[in-house]
């Protein structure tokens, strides 16, 4: 059975700790852009923890919401890409082929979630920080778009390994970096085609909803509302 990878984000567990943010950066060779570039909106965070204020002091609340690529089944970023750099894989992932991207930035405009980030300059790692780079993930050059891949390198590695071991992937065998690090287990990743997987069960929760569902993007990420 083909996989259909998805995620559940439990907002009742998320503590806003941003372990996911740094874990993703570490796993996926996301460059830091430095203070000057960050100040002009060039910082890249494939996953971010949105925070929203409600009310005024003293009756004030804050809510956190981790936002990453929603791996939309009807992804607006895909049809607009003239070079198929943003495209749909057989497993339903929204893949980004950096080599094919020519930097029109159209996909980023079309993405309602603003989860696509552009390399405004060639990324640089002050030596020897480059020794940390994950050899399983290509680094991007100036002028290309990048975004959360659902840690596709981990997915492929696990699938290849499972094939080599001639045994199916078990639920939980495979975690993207953000979910693996998340101390509160707010991020649960797995196969939506397996009705018994943790992510499938959570996605059916009555607390579940999709972000900007009304846009018809059919995200594969389900947000589980904070229980009051």
């Amino acid at each position: 059975m083909a996989h259909r990878w998805g995620m559940a984000v439990d907002l009742d567990r998320c503590t806003g700790c941003e372990a996911c943010v740094t874990a993703c950066r570490a796993e996926n060779n996301i460059a830091t852009v430095g203070a000057a570039q960050a100040a002009v909106g060039r910082a890249m965070h494939w996953i971010r923890v949105e925070r929203y204020w409600e009310g005024e002091f003293p009756d004030v609340r804050l809510t956190f919401r981790p936002v990453l690529c929603q791996q939309c089944d009807a992804a607006p970023c895909e049809p607009v890409c003239p070079t198929y750099a943003s495209h749909h894989t057989e497993e339903g992932l929204n893949a980004q082929v950096y080599n094919r991207c020519i930097g029109t930035r159209y996909c980023a405009n079309a993405c309602p979630y603003n989860v696509r980030f552009f390399n405004f300059f060639n990324p640089a790692w002050d030596k020897p920080l480059h020794l940390q780079l994950n050899p399983d993930v290509s680094v991007r050059e100036v002028g290309v778009m990048e975004k959360c891949t659902f840690c596709v390198q981990r997915i492929s590695a696990a699938e290849v390994q499972a094939k080599a071991d001639s045994k199916p992937l078990a639920d939980g065998d495979l975690k993207p970096a953000c979910a693996q690090s998340c101390p509160a287990t707010a991020l649960v990743f797995g196969d939506l085609n397996d009705p018994e997987s943790a992510v499938s069960r959570l996605s059916r929760s009555s607390r579940g909803s999709k972000l900007l569902d009304d846009l018809g993007t059919q995200p594969k990420i389900t947000y589980l509302a904070k229980q009051a």
Partner: peptide
Amino acid sequence: GFGLTGIRWPVF
């Protein structure tokens, strides 16, 4: 580099 422009996230 394209960063010489004022283009930024999310105004691409």
